[in-house]
Design a protein around this nucleic acid. Structure first.
Length: 427
RNA sequence: GGAGAGAUGGCAGAGCGGUUGAAUGCACUGGUCUUGAAAACCAGCGUACGUUAAUAGCGUACCCAGGGUUCGAAUCCCUGUCUCUCCGCCA
């Protein structure tokens, strides 16, 4: 949610920034609502003030045993006016809320202006793109050779966009997860969390998934949502709270499955593990002092990169242009890993600074030592990393000519010392 | 799932439907006293919104949430959420 004060004072500038990211704010309609709000609020509050005053004199008059009927007549007239004024005001507030809840965050000034992913800007690359002296296979074929990755079995029990992993590949995915968590805990200063995989609508609203993107999430019969990312439960841990400045920064990590409808992505990435309804992710969330969020974004992006560096997977970092950023983000770095079979980089992490956008929705604040007043925090989130996509990147980048997959050195301790996953099926 | 109890300011804890934004204690902040500290005493101490040049005044709202009754609700009624206790079930 944007700062209402900003909308009031700098409407034209806000509308321009929103237009940069492809969102058209109806300026005239908003101005009209704002005018109505002002008139109705002043009227309502003054009527309320009058009513309270008279009601108090009624109490006093009664106590003295005086006649109160004239006062009752007077107040009932005010009551009627108040009722209609109040109703009208509530409607205006509701209309305004509809606008603000559906309006995305403003991009930071250094975010490149652009329409879509074609306008994203590469910041840096890391690692050598591997050269193979044989025809590379994609992870689906590699998985099929071993029998440890089975899309058909998954389709039978769940449908498309699900995967069944078994034996060494299931273990390799677990190894990746453990390695990521351990790195964030031991080297990057995060605390590990275990969180609910189902959340209520309030949490989804707080982090910005609702109301606009309700179709992207799975909803349960009792009105809860399967988390599309651990960002939702983790970030909402600070909802409706006033923290002390000593508590900052808060750095949280959690491994959870993520559930996404992938509505509107028909025909995209239908093969393999790139785009699934269910995938595992290790998430990083930071809650920081507003002065620190820019720096925190750089650090958090580095934390995600460190995982790829340790796995020796080539990647590049891009900054998303205004048109390609997510709803709640003010600036986003995507990390893309090299996928040999596609001969391109694919997104494996997305790190965003949401500034006070989520904090305002969640009422997440801290007490400033200077003024002792509550002030909105800044929130950031980043994947560190998407486990399923990391698994397929390892499979493809570490493949041998015979279909075997070398286990990255840092994962070997998590694999019982195993160095190669062979294609021998024993299912 | 069944039965009961509860939800008030940072914490604890009062509160007959009427000058209650809310007693009292603790904590916290400032001051007096003191060589210093403690103690004691004095004062202050919620949040949001509106109005405004204003972080000054003034106004409004907020005692879990949402409705309702009333001239007037922290106080009465309804619904929901959550917590606790007991029973049942259970990884």
């Amino acid at each position: 949610m944007l700062d209402p004060q900003l909308l009031r004072d700098n409407l034209a500038a806000v509308a321009q920034k929103l237009a940069d990211r492809g969102y058209q704010l109806d300026v005239a309609a908003w101005q009209k609502l704002e005018q109505q709000r002002k008139a109705l609020q002043v009227e309502t509050e003054s009527l309320q003030s009058q009513r309270t005053k008279i009601s108090k004199t009624i109490g006093q008059a009664k106590a003295k045993g005086e006649e109160v009927q004239p006062l009752l007549d007077q107040v009932s007239e005010i009551g009627e006016q108040l009722e209609s004024s109040k109703t009208a005001l509530q409607q205006v507030f509701a209309d305004m809320e509809q606008v603000t809840l559906y309006t995305p965050n403003l991009a930071q000034d250094d975010v490149p202006v652009g329409q879509d992913e074609a306008d994203n800007v590469e910041i840096r690359t890391w690692g050598e793109i591997p050269k193979f002296d044989f025809a590379v296979k994609d992870h689906v074929d590699l998985g099929a050779m071993s029998g440890f990755l089975d899309a058909e079995a998954a389709a039978q029990i769940a449908g498309s966009r699900f995967t069944v992993l078994s034996q060494d590949l299931a273990r390799l995915q677990r190894a990746l997860t453990q390695f990521m968590l351990d790195t964030h805990i031991n080297s990057h200063g995060y605390h590990e969390y275990y969180v609910p995989y189902l959340v209520n609508d309030q949490a989804m609203l707080g982090s910005g998934q609702l109301p606009k993107f309700a179709d992207d999430a799975f909803i349960t019969e009792d009105g809860r949502f399967l988390i599309p990312t651990a960002e939702v439960p983790l970030t909402n841990l600070v909802a409706n709270s006033i923290l002390e400045v000593e508590d900052l920064p808060i750095k949280m990590t959690a491994h959870t499955p993520c559930f996404r409808r992938e509505a509107g992505s028909y025909g995209k990435d239908t093969k393999g593990m790139i785009r699934q309804h269910q995938f595992d992710k290790v998430e990083m969330v930071q809650v920081v002092h507003p002065d620190q969020s820019d720096q925190a974004l750089e650090e958090m992006t580095g934390h995600a990169e460190n995982i790829l560096k340790a796995l020796k997977l080539p990647y590049r970092v891009i900054v998303l242009c205004t048109g390609d950023m997510g709803f709640s983000a003010s600036k986003t770095y995507d990390i893309e890993v090299w996928v040999p079979a596609q001969n391109t980089y694919r997104e494996i992490s997305s790190c965003s600074n949401c500034m006070d956008f989520q904090a305002r929705r969640m009422q997440a604040r801290f007490r400033t030592p200077e003024t002792k007043k509550p002030q909105l925090l800044h929130t950031l989130n980043g994947s560190g990393l998407a486990v399923g996509r990391t698994l397929l990147a390892v499979m493809e980048n570490y493949q041998n000519a015979d279909g075997g997959i070398r286990v990255p050195e840092v994962l070997q301790p998590y694999m019982g010392g195993k160095k190669v996953i062979n294609q021998v099926s024993s299912l």
